[in-house]
Structure formats: structure tokens, C-alpha cells
Write a protein that binds this DNA or RNA. Sequence first.
DNA 1: CAATAATCGAGACGGTACGTCACGTCTTCTT
DNA 2: AAGAAGACGTGACGTACCGTCTCGATTATTG
Lengths: 218, 218, 218, 218
Amino acid sequence: MGKFVKIDCAGNHRRAPGRPRSERARRAILSCTLRFLENRRNGFADLTIEHVAASAEVGKATVYRWWPNKAALVADAFAGSVTRKLHFPDTGSVMQDMNLQMRQLVKILRSRRGNLVSAILGGGQSDRTLITAFRERFMMPRRSEAYVTLQRGIDRGELPASLDMDLLLDALYGPIYLRFLIRHDPLTPEFVDELCTVVFGRFQAAASKAKAAPPPGR
Amino acid sequence: MGKFVKIDCAGNHRRAPGRPRSERARRAILSCTLRFLENRRNGFADLTIEHVAASAEVGKATVYRWWPNKAALVADAFAGSVTRKLHFPDTGSVMQDMNLQMRQLVKILRSRRGNLVSAILGGGQSDRTLITAFRERFMMPRRSEAYVTLQRGIDRGELPASLDMDLLLDALYGPIYLRFLIRHDPLTPEFVDELCTVVFGRFQAAASKAKAAPPPGR
Amino acid sequence: MGKFVKIDCAGNHRRAPGRPRSERARRAILSCTLRFLENRRNGFADLTIEHVAASAEVGKATVYRWWPNKAALVADAFAGSVTRKLHFPDTGSVMQDMNLQMRQLVKILRSRRGNLVSAILGGGQSDRTLITAFRERFMMPRRSEAYVTLQRGIDRGELPASLDMDLLLDALYGPIYLRFLIRHDPLTPEFVDELCTVVFGRFQAAASKAKAAPPPGR
Amino acid sequence: MGKFVKIDCAGNHRRAPGRPRSERARRAILSCTLRFLENRRNGFADLTIEHVAASAEVGKATVYRWWPNKAALVADAFAGSVTRKLHFPDTGSVMQDMNLQMRQLVKILRSRRGNLVSAILGGGQSDRTLITAFRERFMMPRRSEAYVTLQRGIDRGELPASLDMDLLLDALYGPIYLRFLIRHDPLTPEFVDELCTVVFGRFQAAASKAKAAPPPGR
DNA sequence: CAATAATCGAGACGGTACGTCACGTCTTCTT
DNA sequence: AAGAAGACGTGACGTACCGTCTCGATTATTG
């Protein structure tokens, strides 16, 4: 960052001296990393900087110059790949909104992209920076959106104001990741439905009652 | 297994020829593996057959003779270490039973033993045999017990007979493992309580009603 | 030796107690060793006790019980294989006698048996006991015969009484082994002829003169 | 060779890309190899790439990068060590010239350098490339000089023009190597004298006669 | 006949070295 | 400067044999 761009007192950008960083190399490295992780079942452990450099037709030192270690590289590659498909819709029903997004997540986890996620989460157990990258660059942005969606539900009276959002989100997404990581049972859209039923169950009864007799404050 | 013991027609055991396997070596290897995984934050990746052999005062070939790879060794060490503390109590209340066992699990995950679990689950993302070992030697035995506990609840009318047990168990344990693996929020006994409230909530209302007016068919 | 046979005061052989040594095993070990060395170009280094034991269908310990190391085994196998074809004829002419035996040696060195000799001489450079075995069990017996043959020549006046036999034999056999070991030029029967001419040359002139005018003392 | 240096159309040397080979490492490896072989009686078999690398303070891979196997390494080390002491003098007498050089060779074979030669010749029996190295990098250069020396003898009339030089040289050096390799009798300067007498004997008579009555063409 | 004793096969044991691979660093020339 | 190329020292990999050991089974002599 500051390594490449100098800003003079007038606020003008001034390029550092010397040959500028090759954008081509950067892109090739990240995309080779990504391709590798997506296509190999045993991602992180098998991925070697040697191989990445070779297949990106790049010097090994170029990789090391910009990423301190394999985890950083993978985290970066992952961050750059984060899908744009995981936004929450606004259908008018929180449960519907959550359900749709969860189905989308399940779809992605079951695709080649899922290998990438499992590589990150698996490798992350040995390398704190990886799991941090996953958390901050993938999970948190989505949680922020989820908060908004849930708040809409609260505002609409579908959910109680006292709701612990993080607890609810863990209850919704934990089981999905459990099946994804342990693979004891299939991870299907139907599972998402049933899961929503379990977690949202107690609110639905309340909500339907609330619907029949709308809240007094309204 | 059948590799070491021959059974003749009369059903008597007959030792295979050759020097018998050293029990001392077997134990030393497994316990060194275990100790290493428990004490290192980045277990699986850092674990080296070379190191295990050296610290167990054993030839490297002896390790490879009995375990085809690191994953098999770790799976075996893990299986042999499986705690005896994770049984389900029978307090008369399903929710109470589940809650207590979940708290016990959380306690273990937060102990040094947790490093072992995270090494297995992490390594298991690169090696199918590891995750299978976790599933079959750790998870499934516990699930079997859980089924019994849940059935008691059904019999007592605390839970509906139509209950999907696996779904319920995923809903209960998924969030725990999510926090354990991603570490986005602390994994506390209180979290277990709240989680139980979320998942068992809808049954509690029904159950209390059922208590007041016992089911007609009985 | 004394290990197996006890001789009582009366001089009778008495078998030691315990299971007697297996002649079958002994023979199989030696013959497998021999076969291996004869058929492989890179004899000594490639020969492993492990392989010998396996191919002789014998326990490794059985080999080690009777031979302290690879060199002893090879030396023994070699000694037992020593051809019966290398005797010196008695044609009435020393030069003829030597020539014929040398041709025979050359023939053997060029056969599969030659691999064995080169294994012994090659291995012997790293292991004194091997070269000693070659010297004492192969070379010396032949030299003894050669002394007799040469003495016949002296007696007949073909060679001077002052002859240094070892020097002469080195002069005759050294070049053969040089070509055999360094392989800079072919080792042919004709080479033997020419070599005899070179070495016996000065005696031939003397001898022919002597023939014309037989020594006075006779 | 062509591996490291590119020559452009103008004939200028252009270095290959990448870090250049470490001359320091190359030298250390060869000299450690040499030192080891010279100081150990059982050179070739005991020599270990592992040990060479360690004592040269070099990575094992660096050894393997440049020499495919132990034999190639030893051959190279040997070639680089070839003594400068083995030239043929020009005393005016062929026999004297040969005698002096042979004595020099004997002296070297009896020195620490002799261990090296026996390692090469011994190892060479298992590895064709070693014996080839000995032949072409050590023996042949010396033979070439020997041809010149012998030719002088022919020109001077000390030796017949019809002389088979290779035969003569085998007759002279074969016995030396025989004693060196089989060690059945001591390898002394006197042995060289006697050997020369045996081999040059028939020419000396002729030569002395020739001296008395110089050849007609003179 | 039972006891004793040495050998046999099989094969596991703690080691050492093998030759390979990737690590992360370095040194060179080119862009 | 950064790039590619590729050699460097390091260290773990999984394999092959080393020479030793512990088994049960076998085959002899001795009491």
C-alpha cells in the first residue's frame, strides 16, 4: 500500500521510483491459487508456492514479495473471489429472506467453490490468519447484511425486539457448516427449510397470533 | 486385526509367525502424537512423522509399518483418546439432559483436548479418512446415546413423536462447532443455555400445555 | 566347526545337542549369492543380505548366524564355486602350459563367472577380507600349481634356475587382470599369446641355444 | 557447460538466467569427497552423499543437482585431483624413462592418493562410469605421453619399430596394478626394476648388440 | 519319554542413508 | 525497483536394508 504510492504535501499521488508492480503477475498468482484450491479436494495442504509460481509463470520471489506466507495468499485469493450471489433479498418475510440466502449459500458450498471454503476453514485450524480472513472478509460482511434483514423482521413484528441476532444466526448457519465440514448427512435445500422451521418455529406461532391481533402500538 | 491373530478350525487363537508387534512402541507413538496435537495450536500441519518417531524413541519405519500416513496416525491417536466424560445424564428432563452434555462438550472443546478436535476437523478437510474417523469414532457413538435420550423425551411427551432427531441434533451442535471453528464469538456455557432456548423453545410451550392437559389417548 | 562337532577322548565324533544346521539352507544361501553376483553387472554393492535370505527362502538371522557380513558370505560362495577348469596341463613346454592355462582363465573371466571375479576384486578394495579370500582361496592354490609347472621348465632347461617365479607370474597375469578390470582393450586369447611372447621372449632365445648345445653338466 | 553459458550470434558469452552456481559449494563438495576417499581405507562403500554434504556445509540437494550419483561425484573429484607428478622424463634411455615414471606411480599408489585409486577401481567394478572416468581422465593421458616416450626409444633404435606399444604398456603396468589391488606381494621400487628387466630384457640384448654394430642406415 | 538345546522361518525393532520435494532466501541479468 | 530464473541451505518425506531381537515350530541329543 503505502509501499507503492507516495502522497506529497499537496496531496498529489507520486509513483515510487523503479519498475511498478506487475498487475499481470498479481492476477495470475491469485487466479492460479484459486483454481488450484477449487479443483483439488485436499486444498490447502497440497497447495505449494512452488506450484503457484510455476503455473502463474512468475518467479517464486515475486509471490513472497507480496504475500508473507501461504495463508496470506490464500486469504487474499479467497477475498478476491467472494461471490456476489450471497445478498439477502427483501421479500417481505424475514424467514423467506433468510431461507433464500441460506439456500444460496448451500448451493455455493456444494459447488467447486465449496472446496475453497473447506480449504480455508480446514487450513484455518492450523493458521489463525486464515480463519481471521474468513471471518472478516467473508462472514462479517454477510452478517452485517443479515442484521439489516433481521431488523426488518423485528420492525415488521415478525421477530421480537429482544432477539439476540448473533445467537439466531449461529443457530441458522451452524448446522449448515456442520454438515458441510463433517459430511455426516447431505446438505440440501430441504435441510435449509427444515432448519428454518426449527429455528423460526417459536416466532411463527407468535407471529401468526400477532397477525390475527395486530400489535396494539399500531 | 486378522493380520496378527490366526484362528484355527477349533477356534483357538494362534499367533502369526515372527516377532510380535511391540506394544510399548504402539503406545509411545500414539501418546506422543496426542501430546503434540494437544499442546500445539497448529496441530496437524506442524505434526511430523519424523518428530513423532524421534520423541517416541522409535524408528520411523515402525510408524510407517502400522499407519499409512499422518492422517491415519492422528485418527488412531484421537480414537484412543476419546474422552469418557461425554455421556448423557438422565435427569428426567430432555432439555436438561441435552444441556448438561452440551456444556460438557463445550468444556472439553475449550480445554487442551480442543486443540486435538480442531486438528482433526481441520486436517479432515484435506483428508477424508480423518473426518471419517471423527464422524464414526467420535460423533456417531455420541449421537447414538443422544437418540436414546431424545426418545426418552418423546416417551415422556416432552418432544413430539414426529421429531427429526438428526435435524434437532444438528441444530444443537452445529452452532457450537461453528463458534469453535470460526471463533467469531466466545463459546460459553451460557451460549449453550441460550441455544437450548432457541431450539427447544417451541416444544417447551407445547410441553407445558401438554402437562396441564395430558394427551387424550393416554 | 568345533561349534558343531564334539570329539570325545576316544576321538569319535559326537554331535552337539540341539537341531543340526540345515544343509539345505546353507546351500540355498550360497547358491543364491552366487547366482546374483554372476548375473548382475554391479555385483557386490547391489547384493543385499535381505535379498539373499528372501530368495533362498531363509530367515535373515540364519544368514547372519553363519556369516558375519556380506564379504564373508561372498568369499565363501566364491570359494565354493571355484572352477575345476584352471589346472595347468603338462605338454612338455612351459610356455605352452602357461599359455593354455592363461587362455582358460581368460575364457572364464569373459564368462558370467567373470562378473563374480570382478565383484570380488571390486568389493575387495573396500573390504580387506574379500581380497584376502580371493588371494588365499583362489589365487594361491593356482600359484602353487604354477610353481610346479615352472619348476618343470627349469628342470627341463627351458627356464633359468635363478628365475623369480612370483615376478614372472605377476608379469604374466597382471596384464590380464589389468585389461579385465579397466577394460581399455579386449581380453582375447591372442592377447595371451602376445603376452607370453613378451614375457618368455628372452628365455626362448636362450632355450633354443641351450637345445642346440645341451648344458655341459648333463 | 552449455547449460550455464549461452553464446549469442556475435560469439559473446551471455550468462544463463538465474542465480549462478556457487563455486564455493562445488569446490567444497569435491574436496571433501577427495579428502574422505584418501583417508579411509574402504573409500567408496563408506562414502555417503549425506556425509559429503554435511562436511562441505552444503545442502544434499546441491550435491544431487550437479552429480547424478556417487560414482559421478567421485569420478569428478578424482579427475580434478589428478597429480601433476606423473610425467615421463627424457633421460636418453627408454628403459630409464619408463622405470622412473613407474617408480613415481608406485610412490603415488603407496601414498594416501593410492586409497583414491583403489576406491575408483573398486567402485568401478560396480559402476561403468567410474572405470571409464579412470580410463579416460587418468590412464589415457598418461598413455599418450608413454607413446611419445616409446617412440623416442624406437627412433633411437632401443626398441624395434614393430613394437606393440599397448601390449608393452600392459606388460609394464599390469603387474603393478595387480600387486596394488590384490596385495599379495609388496609394491616396491625394486619390483619396478625387476619388472623392467623382465619386459625389456629381450630388447636390451638386441640393443646392446645394435650399439656395438650401429644399424646400417646410420 | 520327557527335558534340554540349538536351529529354523518369520518378521518387528531402532537405526542410517537414500533420493526427492518444497521451503523461504539469495543472486544474477533484464525490463 | 520489480521481474523471471534458478541455485542455495534446510528439513521432512517415504523407502530400503542394516544387524539385532523375539516369537512359535522343528529336530536333534541326553537323562
